[in-house]
């Protein structure tokens, strides 16, 4: 997977900042995507579009707060294909995997900047920063989680099990 980075050097970016509660009256992903991150950064959409960014890098405890699944849905609908942060709130982590949004735990976010192009290989557990020619180990994502993501999320995974029975 390849993509350009938009970085926020902020800890505890909570689910209210990712998708404010006032937009939860409509669960249509497109609508959620339009308002994604708007309380964190009013220019999120414009910055993302100008850079053609698809990867968000942020500081620790990303996605804290409520268990709302609308948070990763909004990010995915906004065209984000991967998130990189030192740590995540645990229900956000689950929800992201469950809807098929890959998410990487990576401590050394100082080595990545807005505008950098990354190449991520989940199978080998490596990440290449093409822009500053550095390579990192990201640890392999557990097979089981890779499987859920590759099949498009937990719903498809469960459907497969039901059909096999």
């Amino acid at each position: 997977m390849r993509g350009i980075v938009l970085k926020y050097n902020q800890k505890n970016i909570n689910t209210d900042l990712i998708i404010p509660a006032r937009y939860l009256n409509d669960s249509d992903p497109e609508h959620l995507g339009l308002h994604c991150m708007e309380d964190l950064d009013h220019d999120f959409k414009q910055k993302k579009d100008n850079l053609k960014a698809t990867i968000i890098v942020a500081d620790s405890n990303f996605g804290s707060g409520s268990s709302r699944e609308q948070a990763p849905i909004a990010l995915k609908a906004a065209g984000i294909i991967c998130i990189i942060a030192p740590s995540y709130a645990r229900i956000f982590y689950r929800n992201a995997i469950n809807i098929g949004l890959p998410i990487i735990e990576f401590d050394d976010i100082s080595k990545i900047n807005t505008g950098d192009e990354l190449e991520i290989n989940f199978e080998d557990g490596t990440m290449n920063n093409i822009s500053n020619k550095s390579e990192f180990k990201i640890g392999k994502m557990p097979k089981f989680l890779q499987e859920i993501i590759s099949i498009g999320g937990l719903v498809n995974f469960a459907k497969k099990i039901i059909l096999e029975k």
């Binding site: 268990s67 699944e69 229900i91 689950r94 929800n95 469950n98 809807i99 089981f144 859920i148 999320g153 937990l154 719903v155 995974f157 469960a158 099990i161 039901i162």
Partner: peptide, 18 residues
């Protein structure tokens, strides 16, 4: 433990959770 809504939907169908 607390989980997301998709986890609950899957659990109601399969009786399982990862």
């Amino acid at each position: 433990t607390g989980v997301g809504s998709t986890d609950l939907g899957v659990a109601m169908a399969l009786g399982k959770c990862w």
